[in-house]
């Protein structure tokens, strides 16, 4: 019996900035019993959508829908891009637009990586060593997708990590896509408050499921001279060094 297929939508940030996240996500999807397919793909359209360019977002969404709609399951290693597809795509098209049902179908089949792994568990194996980690929830995962328990359960099941809570965890890290370059001063203030809360946990590593938050917080920590390393949850679960 052949394995079911799952498409990986890798996201621009992982594709460009941290390809390891793509490879780690692919290996996890495989270990969960799926054949990974990576269709030719671009951006989900969120930068345009968030800038008020709805027509541009619609164009980019159409390209993504065309690339992904033949798959039963689409996995996205990001709450932000996952939320864009799963929650916002249907709103891009009017009710009578033929793209609307296609957007809705794709939305219903799209899962953020930890959502996917909660439904299609990884086989038990040796627990990856991780030590004391701080886990940061992205706003899109927490509030758009309602993902909160999944990453913690996965980390507990597959690593030996001790997760320490970050104070004021519900506050945004200040990334916000282009927000961080449009309002750098406010963004930096939000980021430094978050990194102070992270440093106060005593954790040696910051883990999150969104590269946007990680690049913002990791970059801030590094500039501050902090020894705290960052890791995407896909890399942590895949046991990558």
């Amino acid at each position: 019996m052949s394995q079911p297929e799952a498409a990986l939508f890798v996201t621009c940030l992982a594709d460009l900035m941290r390809p390891e996240v793509g490879f780690a996500a692919a290996s996890l999807i495989q270990r969960a019993g799926f054949t990974v397919v990576v269709p030719r793909q671009g951006c989900c359209g969120q930068p345009n959508y968030n800038a008020g360019d709805k027509a541009g977002a619609r164009d980019l969404a159409k390209a993504a829908i065309a690339a992904l709609e033949r798959f039963e399951i689409v996995v996205v290693p990001s709450g932000s891009c996952g939320g864009m597809i799963a929650k916002h795509y249907p709103h891009l098209f009017e009710a009578d637009d033929p793209w609307r049902p296609r957007a809705e179908r794709l939305a219903s089949r799209t899962l953020e990586l930890t959502q996917f792994l909660a439904r299609h568990p990884l086989p038990d194996g040796p627990k990856a060593p991780a030590g004391k980690i701080a886990y940061h929830d992205s706003c899109s995962a927490r509030r758009e997708l309602g993902v909160l328990a999944e990453p913690r359960a996965l980390i507990a099941a597959h690593t030996d990590a001790e997760i320490v809570p970050i104070a004021d965890a519900e506050s945004c890290c200040g990334f916000g896509g282009t927000f961080c370059v449009k309002y750098p001063e406010i963004s930096a203030r939000m980021a430094s408050e978050k990194t102070a809360a992270i440093a106060a946990t005593g954790a040696g590593m910051l883990v999150a499921a969104d590269l946007g938050c990680l690049l913002n917080l990791g970059g801030t920590l590094k500039r501050q001279g902090s020894p705290i390393a960052i890791k995407h949850i896909a890399e942590l679960l895949a046991g990558e060094p």
Binding site: V10, P184, N216, G219
Partner: peptide
């Protein structure tokens, strides 16, 4: 972006 943050360059060519 780099006013208050360091950026780690990609380790290699893009995933795709």
């Amino acid at each position: 972006f780099t006013a208050t943050r360091d950026m780690t360059p990609p380790s290699g060519a893009s995933f795709q």
